[in-house]
């Protein structure tokens, strides 16, 4: 799981986490037992997607410098990363 989440764990951390997860999953598992025979319900209050037209863009490049300034490494107007392939 830590691999999927791209997180490096310290020595012994995986083991202590797995003990904690047993307790937590056991507790949250009660939801599954109660909803087992329930059909998925719908109500009026479920969050729905709100879409807008893809129009009215802001003026080009007004945020570029502000945003790039936060990048750990840059080259010109690009964010720099290590070789991927």
């Amino acid at each position: 799981m830590a691999k999927l989440a791209r997180i490096e764990l310290g020595d012994g951390e995986a083991e202590s986490l797995s003990h904690e997860f047993d307790a937590i999953l056991n507790y949250v598992g009660e939801v599954r037992d109660v909803t087992n025979d329930q059909q998925p319900t719908t109500n009026d209050y479920i969050v729905k997607n709100v879409l807008r037209e893809d129009t009215n863009p802001h003026e080009s490049s007004i945020y570029t410098e502000k945003i790039l300034k936060q990048a750990p490494a840059r080259e010109g107007n690009y964010i720099k990363v290590k070789k991927i392939l």
Binding site: M1, E20, F21, L25, V28, V31, Q38, P40, T41
Partner: peptide, 30 residues
């Protein structure tokens, strides 16, 4: 934070998604 990200990765992972996340959403509606 590491604990919750990994726990979240687990409850959304293939094979467990319906069992955990699906039931929790049903419960939210109930």
């Amino acid at each position: 934070v590491r604990r919750r990200i990994i726990l979240g990765t687990y409850v959304l992972s293939s094979g467990y998604h319906d069992e955990y996340y699906g039931s929790a959403v049903k419960m939210k509606n109930l």
